[in-house]
């Protein structure tokens, strides 16, 4: 980008050099265009499949819509919206994701504040324990928690899934929010303390409002994570409490005969995360930069 500017200053750029530059740009454009097409085609293909009848999907590929646009139909989506089992799983996804996100944000913010601004003994060791938990694989907890939920009667319940996601979201939440909360200027808090404000008041009136961008980042990240989870739900839910990812996964066993259901279901499950993602992309990137290793 700056090469051309500098070359003008230097005045050394020959005509041949400029031609090379021009074609260099052309090559970069072409390469990235091919990459972009490769990245888009699978999704576009599934989307067009979701707009074709199951008979059409059984006989030909989605690309035939370009020569026979009459194939396009909303029938699959109509069927899906009338499918009580599928819409139930869609609702379950919401019922799992929203509380699991709110709980992680609230509990994580409280703990993050304590780690950032309350000087209790053993704080550093506890924080190191949290950082260690950051990378603990979910798999280690599956068998013990299945047993625990079995004895508590939580197995198959939505509450069990919410609690699992909350617990495994917390290390990252605490780590992220603590790091942001420590950047709040200490003088503000000292002044409030001298005025006799309680810790709860300092937390809710000073630290939380100032740390809002971090809280938003965490919320978006956790929302997408829980919405898109399959493994935890696969184990801890049953037919009536399963989220949409598990419902789609169970359809995959009869792959081939049901591309109409699979493609429209997958697309319906993608709409909300895509909206959240495009609307709050900046916050999502902040969370990624803060370093997640889940």
């Amino acid at each position: 980008m700056t090469t051309t500017d500098l070359s003008i200053v230097r005045g050394k750029r020959s005509a041949a050099g400029r031609v090379v530059d021009f074609f260099g740009k052309g090559v970069v454009n072409l390469v990235l265009l091919i990459v972009a097409v490769f990245w888009l085609v699978p999704t576009v293909g599934l989307f067009l499949s979701s707009l074709r009848s199951s008979t059409d999907n059984g006989q030909s590929g989605w690309w035939t819509v370009f020569t026979a646009p009459a194939q396009l139909t909303l029938k699959n989506y109509e069927n899906l919206l009338g499918n009580a089992q599928f819409m139930g799983s869609f609702w379950n996804t919401i019922v799992i994701t929203v509380p699991a996100t709110i709980l992680v944000v609230v509990i994580g913010a409280l703990a993050g504040y304590a780690f950032a601004w309350v000087k209790f003994p053993g704080r550093d060791w506890l924080l190191i324990a949290v950082i260690v938990m950051l990378a603990v694989p979910v798999q280690v907890a599956l068998i013990p928690i299945a047993k625990l939920y079995g004895s508590l009667g939580l197995f198959g319940s939505i509450i069990g899934v919410i609690l699992f996601h909350t617990a495994f979201g917390l290390p990252f939440a605490i780590f992220l929010l603590r790091n942001f909360f420590t950047q709040v200027p200490g003088e503000l808090m000292e002044a409030a303390r001298l005025d006799g404000a309680s810790e709860m008041r300092i937390f809710s009136r000073i630290v939380l409002p100032l740390g809002m961008p971090a809280v938003a980042s965490l919320g978006i990240f956790q929302f997408l994570w829980v919405w898109n989870d399959m493994l935890v739900a696969l184990i801890f839910t049953n037919a009536s409490s399963q989220p949409v990812t598990v419902a789609i996964q169970s359809q995959l066993r009869q792959f081939g005969a049901n591309i109409d259901v699979l493609s429209s279901g997958a697309f319906l499950s993608m709409i909300i995360p895509l909206i959240v993602f495009f609307a709050f992309q900046r916050y999502f990137v902040t969370a990624l930069l803060a370093g997640s290793q889940r």
Partner: peptide, 29 residues
């Protein structure tokens, strides 16, 4: 375009790839 797949579930991504890589050349892109 390149960042978008990060937003969708691996299950949905799986459906996308399973469809694209089907063996039958009439169906798999």
């Amino acid at each position: 375009i390149v960042f978008m797949p990060m937003a969708i579930s691996m299950v949905a991504a799986g459906v996308i790839f399973r469809t694209a890589f089907q063996e039958n050349p009439q169906l798999g892109s």
